[in-house]
Amino acid sequence: MCYKSNSGHVNARRILGREHFKLIYEKNPQDVEINPEAGKAVFEALGSEFGADHFRRDRYRQESGLPDFRVRMRDGQLVPSLGISETLNNVPDVSVDYVFAERSMLDRAQQWLTGRRADIIQPKKEETDNG
């Protein structure tokens, strides 16, 4: 009996055979300075070169805003937390961007990416308006 056509077979095989995807790119401050969506650019470039199925992207951006709540002062006055705490105003925001590659593809993809990365993450200036 062949299970290969069953939905989830590929994912099950990856779990059982420890064929999990490996990290190929992670966002860093230098790249973000050039392109805040550097991870997307890398993911798309790898996908169009080797096939989108071989890559996964994990983008997480913190969704909550600033920690804004009322604080009761000693004299009973209620004031906004952000108005009295410099620390709360400077809590770093979490923003991560990872690209993972299928193991079988990792070395080739890594080799291809090295040396091209700077060009790939360079955002293109608008030439036509498609917004």
């Binding site: 805040p36 951006r61 913190q62 969704e63 600033l66 804004d68 108005g83 400077n90 925001d93």
Partner: peptide
């Protein structure tokens, strides 16, 4: 969420002027 992301990407920043928000 986008304002938070813009802060994370250092495209906007917060200015604090006590006792205001």
């Amino acid at each position: 969420y986008e304002l938070t992301a813009l802060r994370a990407d250092e495209l906007i920043r917060i200015e604090l002027q006590r006792p205001y928000g």
